[in-house]
Amino acid sequence: MALTALICDDSLLARNQLKKSLPSGFDANILTAGNGVEALTILRTREVGLVFLDLTMPELDGVGVLEAIKAEAMDCLVIVVSADIQPEMQKRVMELGALAFVQKPASADKLADVMHKYGLI
């Protein structure tokens, strides 16, 4: 059965950019969420293996989503894709259990590198 991946970003452009930049060898059902609250609703009801997570979002931000994933011990991998590139923020999301940090706008090459490194493609 193919993996289910969730793209969580408040921007339609960013969601589309990311969807288009995913490596061609990545076989997954893609779901999308427009903020952290929507993402958690999906994560609590569906089996999602991989999350592409933006940080700066209304309602609930990416850090809030990571905290919930950790607190509820959800079994999913998270790649943070964010414009907030401050070293302290990168450190914080890694400490909260993110697999990797990718700077926005996410290039296809960088995504492929990261996903290859963690055996996702």
């Binding site: 921007s11 339609l12 452009l13 960013a14 964010s82 414009a83 907030d84 590139i85 926005k104 706008p105």
Partner: peptide
């Protein structure tokens, strides 16, 4: 939405 996202990315760099 497109402009907002471009602004968002540029803001992230400026904030850093």
């Amino acid at each position: 939405d497109c402009l907002q996202e471009l602004v968002n990315v540029a803001m992230g760099q400026a904030s850093d």
